[in-house]
Design a binder for these strands. Structure first.
Length: 502
RNA sequence: GCUCCGGUGGUGUAGACCGGCCAAGCAUAUGGGGCUCUCAAUCCCACGACCCGGGUCCAAAUCCCGGCCGGAGCACCA
């Protein structure tokens, strides 16, 4: 096989090599105009790390093949709409660098849905029922029709007109698309396509009473929007089967559907209903609270959207269920941000040590130690005199009585509430203090001396660390810093930062 | 219960459609080492996996059957 390719289509091999970086498998049936794909979130809240997979996957293929990427906001359930979400979703996508080409809002398309339903009823492929749903469900299980299913299109059309006109109350009537009552999978048998909703719609008010169900509006839109490929979660596999019936009744060409597995994202709060409740009762500071798994929260924690993209490309489109690995995600992000993150000292839970010294010690600590950064020669310059030196309580407990190296300052000995300077390089004094240990192994710790300010770091688990942050960090507000030996932190202002990751 | 789908190291994946080049690649984590006045980044080395049982075949991670385990759907949510 490989030999044949090599001999007859050497150019294919070249593409394969170039694509190696991309990793996602090719899509079938790509036309000359590329693909038409969609992002179809419901506007219940801003996007979260789970939505990002759907967004990135679709966008990657759109980038590869060109064509259209449609943002279709599925707002056909007024009870579950957060009005701000229409905008927030677009902002989130922009942040992810997902550049959709078209915006479609389903609540603007009711006329199309009504027309299409009418056609199906006329064709005898749909019906409108007032039979109690309990009976509808029970009969479906047995594979027998309810009364209305066998009535004429005229009778059903009559009820349909009344349904659209708002002459029924909520729960009294529903419209159904016929599939196959004997389908081996009961989940696929006749499905409800329209229902009555009396909750006012945030955009349309009470203009409509008959609302399409997702399985109906999606099929209609997927066709009329000209979709060629649809990538969505595998919780939709049964839905795809249902939607297939509408396509076949109308003789439409089905887009190519691909279902990826479920990602369970541990330790992340994603459910919008829970988040809204939490915001209301003060448990969360807002949609961007660091405890949340929203993209807004990740942004505020200082993640680069490229890390999210990389992660989901790496995960691929397999149908296997997976667990989101924060560890791997952090690693991707760390590699992206490390080189551009200024280094500073943050003394978490500081311990103050008396420093008795004549004269001044100088320290020049690199700000961007990685070669290649435009400021890689810059340092934080300090003169340390008699007074106080602070270190973290953790280091204090560990090294009290021992020799330590204060980073870029010199060798010191910690002696309870005091700290003593021993020299800037290894000498006899130091060897005395450290008789048994190899001198190359002296622990290097971070410190501050009069150049710190109170600072608080909000962590994703809801806790916070308080301590002293090096004042020089103020020159780099709203940037992710690497607080040495502590972790990466997005410094928001002179008082608070959000913890990115270790 | 019914109908689908799937199970590769701790974790995320490649390979599976079209059986051999897979005594299984990559990433992450872990352990060790180099570099570095950070427990970061970077470089090197090590570690570690084809769910189980049958079958087909010269040959099975890959095909078939059974089992076990996991997931999805069976809504007037999307």
């Amino acid at each position: 096989m490989k030999n044949i390719v090599q001999r007859d289509f050497p150019e294919l091999l070249v593409t394969t090599l170039k694509e190696e970086e991309k990793k996602l498998p090719d899509l079938p049936d790509i036309g000359k105009d590329g693909v038409v794909m969609r992002l179809a979130p419901s506007p219940s809240g801003p996007l979260h790390i789970g939505h990002a997979r759907m967004s990135i996957l679709n966008d990657e293929y759109f980038r590869r093949y060109g064509g259209k990427l449609i943002l279709r906001i599925e707002d056909t359930n007024p009870a579950n709409i957060e009005p701000d979400a229409y905008q927030m979703i677009q902002d989130d996508l922009r942040w992810l660098e997902v550049n959709f080409t078209d915006l479609v809002i389903q609540s603007k398309r009711f006329n199309i849905y009504y027309e299409e339903m009418e056609k199906l009823i006329e064709m005898g492929k749909a019906y409108v029922a007032t039979t109690p749903t309990e009976e509808f469900k029970a009969k479906k299980q047995m594979g027998t029709p309810i009364r209305e299913r066998d009535e004429s299109p005229e009778e059903n059309l009559e009820r349909w007109d009344k349904m659209v006109a708002g002459e029924y109350e909520k729960g009294e009537v529903y419209a159904v698309v016929k599939t196959d009552l004997n389908h081996s999978n009961p989940a696929i048998r006749d499905f409800i396509a329209f229902r009555i909703v009396d909750t006012p719609h945030p955009l349309e008010g009470d203009r409509y009473k008959a609302y399409p169900m997702m399985n109906f509006s999606v099929a209609i839109d997927d066709h009329y929007l000209g979709l060629t490929h649809v990538i969505r979660g595998k919780d939709h596999t049964a839905n795809t089967e249902k939607q297939k019936y509408i396509f076949s009744y109308r003789n439409w060409k089905m887009p190519y559907y691909l279902h990826y597995g479920k990602v369970s994202i541990e330790h992340a709060i994603l459910k919008t209903s829970l988040i809204k409740k939490g915001i209301r009762n003060g448990e969360y500071s807002g949609w961007d609270d660091p405890k949340l798994g929203t993209l807004l929260a990740l942004k505020k924690r200082g993640f680069d959207p490229l890390a999210i993209r990389k992660y989901y490309i790496e995960s691929g489109i397999g149908s296997v269920d997976t667990t989101f690995s924060w560890e791997i995600f952090y690693s991707f992000n760390r590699k992206i941000i490390d080189g551009r993150s200024p280094r500073h000292f943050f003394i978490n839970d500081p311990v103050s040590l008396k420093f008795d010294f004549d004269g001044a010690l100088t320290a020049d600590i690199p700000l961007f130690p990685q070669a290649g950064h435009s400021d890689d020669q810059k340092t934080r310059h300090y003169e340390v005199r008699k007074g106080e030196i602070v270190v973290t309580s953790q280091d204090f407990q560990k090294f009290n009585g021992d020799l330590v190296r204060l980073k870029d300052l010199g060798y010191f000995k910690i002696d309870d509430d005091r700290i003593e300077y021993l020299g800037e390089s290894i000498n006899e004094d130091i060897q005395k203090w450290n008789p048994n240990k190899p001198l190359g192994k002296v622990p290097i710790i971070h410190w501050l001396s009069g150049n710190g300010m109170p600072f608080k770091v909000m962590k994703p688990d809801g806790s916070a660390d308080s301590g002293l942050l090096e004042k020089d960090a103020l020159n780099y507000i709203s940037m992710v810093h690497q607080l040495e030996r502590y972790g990466y932190v997005n410094v928001l202002n002179d008082k608070t930062g959000y913890f990115t990751h270790p």
